[in-house]
Each structure stands twice: as structure tokens, then as C-alpha cells.
Simulated scan of single mutants.
Amino acid sequence: MGVCGSGKSEVGRRVAQALGARFIEGDDYHSPANVAKMASGIPLDDADRAAWLQCLRQEIATARGTGASLVVSCSALKRRYRDLLREGDPALRFAHLKGERNVIAQRLAARKDHYMPPALLDSQLQALQPLQADETGVTLDITAAPQQLAEAILEIAQR
């Protein structure tokens, strides 16, 4: 989890590969209307995110029901979003990839071929509710290399 440009997809793919798990890119589950809204620089609101989160919750529930391993990259910015995702699997764990605004802004400026414009970073940072003490997960600093972040997540997952 984390804001746009935090490295969720890259780290998530590495974790999934190491686990032999299916990887879901959460961005792929946004509706065309949501993608168009973000591409035009308009932040999504809770109503926009509702169906998207339900789709991801269902994917998580299906994986749990079949015993399949699954890694999902998803902003999961708010506690209530994470609570909804946990409805799919109460044992769901989160890795919050956290970094300074200027580091993330530089990453977004360098990113090509993504519909999410750098202008939406501040709205995501405003919406972000970090993991709370009663949520199972870990917060990691994005200044570490993606492989180091993936290894830290894998180490925690094996506990």
C-alpha cells in the first residue's frame, strides 16, 4: 500500500515472484471512468473507489477460498479501505511503502506512460491514513532498493 509512485507495483511483483504467488496490479481494476478522471487531474473520492475496492476484495476472498497465494498492489489509503479489503481475508497483511513527498514527486516526474499525473500526489498524501497499531502490517522506507523492500516483506511474511 501507499501513494502513487511509492513503488508498490515493483515491490509487489518481486514479492509475488519470490512466493510463487499471483500478482494483481490494483490500477488495472479501476473503471475507465476512474482512469479518465485521474488522467485529467481530478482526485478520486470514496464513491469513485467503492466498486474498485469491492473488486479487489473479491479477488482477495477468492484467493483465500481456494488457498491461493496472492499479492496485491493497491493504494489502500484509508483505514476503512483496508478494513474492506480485510473482509476478503481477515489474515490480510499490509506493507506500507512510505517516503518523503519530494522523493515520490521526483519518481512521478520521471514516470512515463502512466495515467496518474504527479499533480494528484498531494491529494493522495492528504487522504493517506498510515497503518494503525491494531492493523497487521509493516511500514517501510522507500529509499531502500526495491529488492531490499521485497526481502523485508518476505522476511516478515515468514513469521
Score class of each variant (00 low, 15 high):
75 S>F: 11
65 G>S: 08
76 A>P: 05
59 E>R: 15
53 L>D: 09
51 A>Y: 05
82 R>A: 09
76 A>F: 11
82 R>L: 10
55 C>V: 15
72 V>Y: 05
67 G>T: 01
74 C>Q: 05
76 A>N: 10
82 R>C: 08
49 R>F: 15
62 T>Y: 08
70 L>E: 12
52 W>Q: 01
83 D>L: 12
63 A>P: 06
62 T>D: 08
62 T>P: 04
55 C>Q: 04
87 E>D: 11
58 Q>L: 05
57 R>D: 01
84 L>C: 12
60 I>Q: 01
55 C>G: 06
84 L>S: 10
63 A>T: 02
63 A>C: 00
81 Y>M: 12
85 L>M: 04
71 V>C: 08
64 R>A: 15
77 L>C: 12
85 L>Y: 03
63 A>Y: 10
64 R>E: 07
66 T>I: 03
59 E>G: 04
65 G>T: 06
56 L>R: 05
63 A>S: 07
87 E>R: 13
58 Q>P: 00
60 I>S: 14
67 G>H: 00
69 S>K: 13
66 T>C: 03
49 R>K: 14
86 R>W: 12
54 Q>R: 08
77 L>I: 13
65 G>I: 14
57 R>F: 02
57 R>N: 07
78 K>H: 03
58 Q>S: 15
80 R>Y: 10
55 C>W: 04
68 A>N: 13
49 R>D: 13
75 S>R: 00
56 L>C: 09
74 C>E: 04
82 R>I: 06
61 A>N: 01
55 C>F: 08
76 A>I: 06
70 L>T: 10
81 Y>N: 05
87 E>Y: 09
69 S>C: 09
53 L>K: 10
79 R>A: 13
81 Y>S: 06
79 R>F: 11
63 A>D: 06
73 S>H: 04
60 I>L: 05
83 D>V: 13
84 L>V: 12
59 E>F: 07
50 A>I: 03
69 S>F: 10
75 S>A: 15
85 L>C: 04
56 L>F: 13
63 A>H: 08
67 G>Q: 06
73 S>M: 01
56 L>D: 07
53 L>R: 13
86 R>N: 07
56 L>E: 10
71 V>G: 12
77 L>T: 14
76 A>E: 06
69 S>T: 08
82 R>P: 04
